[in-house]
Design a protein around this nucleic acid. Structure first.
Length: 493
RNA sequence: GGCGGCAUAGCCAAGUGGUAAGGCAAGGGUCUGCAAAACCCUCAUACCCCGGUUCGAAUCCGGGUGCUGCCUCCA
């Protein structure tokens, strides 16, 4: 497959360190607040990458960290009067719930800073021994000027940055650009012993230490949001290669685009945040995921509620299509007709080629939609046989799995939870139309009774009444559809 | 101030030299008691503007305009 490499600034063939194996490290979250849709985008993008690589036959090892110790966590914990690691643990479990709802596969390894202190200390020791870092009054600092290639990832020169007015002034540093590898603890702060004094890691060193620990030098893909290019990933390269004695740190750098809200980047510090939890109250996780995947992963994504409506429509279409095939599929030894088989294999070929092209999801979705239309067209010309439906279902499901949109139960759950919220409305409708119900009926029981009432009306030619009932249900957000095989319903909040 | 990115229909969005994918919305039709779903048809002589290169440009080059990312914690 081809991927866009940030360092080389071009799209290149992905050649793994070891044939058939991909090692990837993705910068995770700092869990001091609920995850927002931007965090979700990054997680979903790399989850897609992992799924595609596995689908393409690679053995993938995916590592993603939690920065469970940092300035913000410490400050937040103080404000709330709790222990920092408890605060981060709470948000980590919340994050896990959110990611599960988005059908993000758990990474294979999820190291935490607080559990990686020894690796971090060892790495800092090597950097100091190699002459790239020094101990100062309030911590251990990396000497940016000693690392020639500093700036290679972000495309800036050390001199450009020096002239920038916004570089932090700190007299403990030898140079304003130097960054902390180890921060000495202030009284009462969480800290660990180190050869240089009690303290905690700087932000950047942790990712170097954890990725090298679990994947080794020269691992394949290092990813994250594009806002991490500078300084985080730039610093990672510098400190890692300073410790690695000439070995390469990472083979390919990938960066996912930001989610913009109201014209600027959504971020906790700006405060223009929509959390994953808020969205999940409105939309099934699969819809949120589909929304995030419709745009190329590298481009900025303008957050818009109408986009979720469109994604919902598309998701329903896919869910309905799958149900349609499932209803027809039958195990069979019949050979699928060549014309039909070519629709299926052509689809899978185009789908794979799209994702192999630097994860071109827009193109992949076009293949999915085209496939649905072709199969439906075929089905409208003549009945599909069981083996054809099975073949189409198999192809469709394999694509859905790669996209992470294989949780059809998610849609059904969403439907039934919306339905459950309509107890009172349904009771009112039932009473109004004279359906046979009692107070103990469940929502689905109520709906069944109303549908039965309407069915009788239709069968006896009382179409006015049938239409009236359908209209009443529509007014409470339930749309009935009469099909040849019975009545179906769609539901909206 | 420095270094980047983006600009395609009402909306979302592919396409990086060969004559504009796909989806949503909209309009028309088939089917249906009527709807809905499904299927069929229509929907950018045109890709922010102005120049240039080329047989040929949404795609390359130059200049504008607008939006935006990073340079500080960030996914």
């Amino acid at each position: 497959m081809r991927i866009h490499d940030t360092l080389m600034r071009k799209t290149v063939e992905l050649v793994p360190r070891e044939p058939g194996k991909i090692t990837m490290y993705v910068c995770g979250v700092t869990p001091y607040a609920s995850a927002h849709i931007g965090h979700a985008r990054t997680a979903v993008v790399y989850d897609l990458l992992k799924r595609y690589l596995r689908h393409a036959g690679f053995a993938v090892t995916h590592v993603s960290n939690y920065t469970d110790v940092d300035d913000k966590i410490i400050r937040r914990a103080q404000e709330q009067g709790v222990v920092p690691l408890d605060l981060s643990a709470r948000y980590i479990s919340e994050y896990l719930e959110d990611m599960a709802a988005l059908n993000v596969l758990p990474p294979d390894i999820t190291p935490r800073v607080s559990e990686s202190i020894q690796d971090i200390i060892n790495l800092i020791g090597r950097i100091i021994a190699n002459g790239y870092a020094y101990v100062s009054r309030d911590g251990v600092y990396f000497s940016v000027r000693k690392f020639d290639r500093y700036g290679c990832l972000s495309g800036r020169s050390v001199d450009e940055m020096r002239s920038g007015a916004r570089v932090e002034v700190n007299e403990a540093k030898e140079d304003p650009l130097d960054f902390a590898l180890w921060k000495f603890a202030k009284p009462g702060e969480i800290s660990w012993d180190s050869p240089w004094g009690k303290g905690r890691p700087g932000w950047h060193i942790e990712c170097s230490a954890m990725s090298l620990r679990h994947l080794g030098a020269g691992f394949d893909i290092h990813g994250g949001g594009e806002d991490l290019i500078f300084p985080h990933h730039e610093n990672e390269i510098a400190q890692s290669e300073a410790a690695l004695d000439g070995q390469q740190f990472v083979r390919y750098w990938m960066h996912s685009g930001m989610v913009n809200m109201g014209g600027e980047k959504m971020s906790k510090s700006v405060g223009n945040v929509t959390t994953v939890r808020e969205l999940l109250e409105q939309y099934p996780g699969q819809v949120v995921r589909l929304y995030l995947l419709q745009t190329s992963y590298e481009k900025p994504l303008k957050f818009s509620i109408s986009g979720f409506g469109q994604a919902f429509t598309n998701y329903e279409r896919m869910a309905e299509f799958e149900a349609f095939l499932q209803g027809l599929a039958q195990a069979s030894h019949d050979i699928v007709k060549e014309e039909f088989e070519s629709i299926c294999s052509g689809f899978l070929g185009e789908f794979d080629a799209s994702l192999a092209d630097n994860l071109n999801t827009s193109r992949a979705f076009a293949a999915v939609y085209e496939f649905m239309t072709r199969v439906r067209r075929m089905a409208s010309e003549r009945p599909l046989d069981g083996s054809e439906a099975s073949r189409a279902l198999e192809a469709f499901r394999s694509a859905l799995w790669v996209l992470g949109l294989d949780q059809t139960c998610d849609y059904m759950e969403h439907k039934s939870s919306l339905l459950a919220g309509k107890q009172h409305a349904l009771m009112a409708v039932a009473v109004e139309v004279g359906a046979a119900v009692d107070d103990h009926d469940s929502t689905s029981g109520l709906l069944d009774a109303i549908v039965m009432k309407r069915r009788i009306a239709r069968e006896t030619g009382q179409y006015d009444m049938a239409d009236q009932i359908r209209e009443r249900l529509r007014s409470v957000g339930i749309a009935l559809e009469d099909g040849v095989d019975g009545v179906r319903y769609r539901i909206r909040g």
